[in-house]
Design a protein around this nucleic acid. Structure first.
Length: 464
DNA sequence: TCACCTTACACATTTGAATGGG
DNA sequence: ACCCATTCAAATGTGTAAGGTG
């Protein structure tokens, strides 16, 4: 459905995109699918939460994808970054997420570079690609290259495929961006929804020790003789949840409150909101669709909702902005969602390329609270033209050893990321920085509300 | 008082070096 | 000398609980 529409769009990229993308073949044939979509959806239905810690925490589920349609002999670089779902901060209140105000200024935007980058298309296509090592942190001064996020804020990962011969001679003019609705999550320093905790324990091997069947009971009973407060918050709640909330309604129960306080939220709709608010702010509209079936069709892995061709970064930024801007409130989005697609379709015009996307399936970020994203976004940082990358396992055998992430954050005030790293990251002549600098401007140009997204470019730091 | 964050902890998996056999 | 499989300890990844912070 929507995928088709998007595809149509894909074939007719914006002028800017067209101009910047000489190779149509690459643009239109790359296909990226998410692995283990069912697991992601399971979490998504409840409201995925990702722990962020100072030293950095892995994601679970972690991002794992499959690629196809690449030119076997051409080299590509794979990147992942996290983009805000919207411009709000949330709080967990009475078993549901509620908006707690405007989002905090965005932390330094970092992009995770897959350690095997660059590699031939054949390499990327022969097996699934895991971003297991990607870590999230709430430490804005982090010097390990982890992706910095704000707690109690919503994000979703964005995958970028860049055709480049090597890390130092990147041809930034050709790359595509993909996102999956089911991968959106709330960054937290401690789990709020006990259902999520349970899911994590049940599925993450490292948390095996907390499973009921295992030593968990023993351990818990010993350690926690009686902790009414906390216990109630976890065990009790979890029990109650499992008992009271029927699986199919996870989203609703969890986010009912959202609309409730929407009053002070910009662009919140009343009637619609009321009705919609029953759904999760970010999962609401997709709830009926994504939750149980794959948007793209029978194959859940085809759920990638947006394949974007961003030869000119400008194209996708605007798209994003547009995307959110059109669905300012969960209510509105939901309402439309009756179908949930109102917001989605609205952004289509700005999408350079979005093949195989099912329009009928609303996306997490395009619906819910996120919508407001752009406008209400609080004083965004200036990331224009900045790119920061972290190379996982740098130095390992068989792994690119380029240390391209920079310890800039520590030295640089958040709002001063106006350019490539200092001496240590001499920015060789490449198009990236320039493109992004332009991009921001561009967005502003084509989209009145660019403010927020235009300042949240793909790369936050120029590493080379 | 409250919401959120940090830290130490115990338990689990993963990793990689060391070892031994073929 | 090489390859492979096994073992084992260290490193790393988990959620929990308790305390700290504003």
């Amino acid at each position: 459905m929507q995928s088709r529409d998007l595809k149509a769009n894909f074939s007719v990229p914006p002028p800017s995109a067209m101009a910047a993308v000489p190779d149509a073949y690459v643009q239109g044939n790359i296909r990226l699918t998410l692995e283990d979509p069912e697991l992601w959806k399971t979490f998504c239905e409840i409201g995925t939460e990702m722990i962020i810690t100072k030293p950095g925490r892995r994601m679970f589920p972690h991002c794992k994808i499959n690629l196809s349609g690449l030119i076997p002999c051409a080299k590509y670089i794979l990147l992942v970054d996290m983009v805000p779902e919207d411009g709000f901060r949330y709080k967990w209140n009475k078993e549901k997420w509620e908006v707690a105000g405007k989002a905090e200024p965005q932390p330094p935007c970092r992009t995770y570079l897959h350690p095997e980058s660059p590699a031939p298309g054949s390499h990327w296509m022969k097996q699934s690609i895991s971003f297991l090592k990607l870590k999230l942190t709430n430490n804005t001064l982090d010097q390990h290259g982890h992706i910095i996020l704000h707690s109690m804020h919503r994000y979703h990962p964005r995958f970028h495929i860049v055709q480049a011969d090597d890390l130092f001679s990147v041809r930034w003019s050709v790359f595509q961006t993909f996102t999956f609705p089911e991968t959106s999550f709330t960054a937290v320093t401690a789990y709020q929804n006990t259902k999520i905790t349970k899911l994590k324990i049940d599925h993450n091997p490292f948390a095996k020790g907390f499973r009921d069947e295992g030593t968990t009971k023993k351990r818990r009973s010993n350690k926690n003789p009686i902790c009414p407060e906390k216990r109630s918050r976890t065990s009790n709640i979890s029990n109650r949840d499992s008992e009271e909330d029927s699986p199919p309604d996870f989203c609703r129960s969890s986010y009912e409150g959202y609309d409730g306080d929407g009053g002070d939220l910009p662009k919140r709709k009343g009637a619609d909101g009321a009705k919609e608010q029953r759904y999760s702010p970010w999962t609401s509209d997709r709830e009926p669709t994504v939750r149980t079936e794959s948007p793209a069709g029978t194959d859940p892995r085809d759920m990638y909702n947006a394949e974007q061709l961003v030869p000119a970064p400008a194209s996708y930024q605007p798209y994003r902005f547009h995307e959110y801007g059109k669905s300012p409130s969960p209510s509105s989005s939901v309402s439309s969602s009756g179908t949930g697609r109102g917001s989605f379709e609205s952004r289509v015009p700005d999408v350079a390329t979005v093949p195989d996307h099912d329009p009928s399936k609303p996306r997490a970020h395009e619906v819910g609270p996120s919508p407001g994203g752009p406008q209400p976004h609080p004083a965004p940082q200036d990331y224009s033209g900045v790119l920061n990358m972290s190379v996982a396992q740098a130095g390992k055998p068989g792994v690119i050893s380029h240390h391209i992430y920079g310890p800039y954050a520590a030295e640089q005030p958040l709002g001063q990321w106006s350019g490539p790293g200092p001496a240590q990251y001499p920015p060789p002549p490449h198009h990236l920085t320039a493109d992004y600098a332009t991009q921001a401007v561009h967005h502003g140009y084509h989209h009145g509300n660019v403010a927020e997204w235009s300042q949240y470019p793909l790369f936050s730091y120029s590493c080379w």
